[in-house]
Amino acid sequence: MIGNKRSFVSKMGEELIALILGSAPDAIRAVTWPKRDKCKIVSINNAWRIRDDWDYSVYPDDFPTQYRPDRKSHAQRLIDSSIYVPANNQFGGIVYAGATMAFTAGYWALSALKPTVLAYLGCDMVYTGRNTHFYGQGTPDPIREDITLLSLEAKSARLMTIAAQQHCACVNLSEELESRLLFPRVSHTALSGDLPLTNYSAELSRKALSLENEAGYLIQDGKYWEHYASFDQNVLAEIDRLWLSAVGV
Rank of each mutant, 00 (worst) to 15 (best):
N234E: 14
A154D: 08
A190D: 08
W225T: 13
N172K: 05
W243M: 08
I143R: 09
D221W: 03
S210Y: 09
T148V: 06
H227E: 11
V249I: 10
L149Q: 10
R206S: 12
D141W: 10
A163E: 00
Y217C: 15
E178G: 00
A246T: 01
A169L: 08
D141Q: 10
R241A: 14
R180D: 04
E178V: 11
E178N: 10
Y224T: 04
C170E: 01
A215K: 04
P196Q: 09
L149T: 03
E214L: 09
I143A: 06
A164Y: 02
M160K: 03
N213S: 15
F183P: 08
D221M: 07
A208N: 08
S174Q: 06
H167R: 11
W225A: 13
N199P: 01
E145Y: 06
E178Y: 09
D146V: 04
Q220D: 14
E212G: 12
S201L: 10
C170D: 00
L182V: 07
Q220R: 11
N199Q: 03
S245P: 00
H188S: 07
N213M: 13
L211K: 15
L181Q: 06
E153W: 00
T189E: 13
D240W: 01
D194M: 12
I143K: 08
L197W: 01
A190R: 04
L236K: 10
E214I: 01
Q166R: 11
H167I: 02
D240E: 10
C168A: 08
D146M: 10
I143W: 02
A215C: 11
D194F: 12
L218M: 11
L195Y: 04
L204V: 03
A157Y: 01
P196F: 09
K207D: 14
L195P: 02
L236I: 07
S245G: 15
T198R: 02
Y228V: 13
R241N: 14
E238P: 05
L150A: 13
H167P: 00
K155V: 03
L197E: 04
Y224I: 07
G222T: 05
T189F: 07
D146E: 08
E203D: 15
Q220H: 11
F183C: 12
Y224R: 05
A163R: 00
E145V: 08
N234G: 15
A154I: 00
K207R: 13
N213A: 15
L242M: 11
T148K: 06
K207S: 15
Y217H: 15
R185D: 04
E153C: 08
D146L: 06
E153P: 05
E176L: 11
A154S: 13
D240Y: 03
I239L: 13
P142M: 13
L182Y: 00
S205A: 15
R241G: 15
L152P: 11
L152F: 01
A164F: 07
V247A: 06
D194A: 14
L236F: 05
L195N: 01
A190P: 00
T189I: 10
E212F: 03
C170K: 00
D141F: 05
S174A: 02
E214W: 02
H188C: 05
E226T: 12
E238C: 13
T148I: 06
E238W: 05
A202Y: 03
G216N: 10
H167C: 09
S230P: 02
H188V: 05
D221E: 06
M160W: 00
I143T: 14
K223N: 15
I147C: 09
A190Y: 02
A157G: 03
H188K: 02
L242E: 09
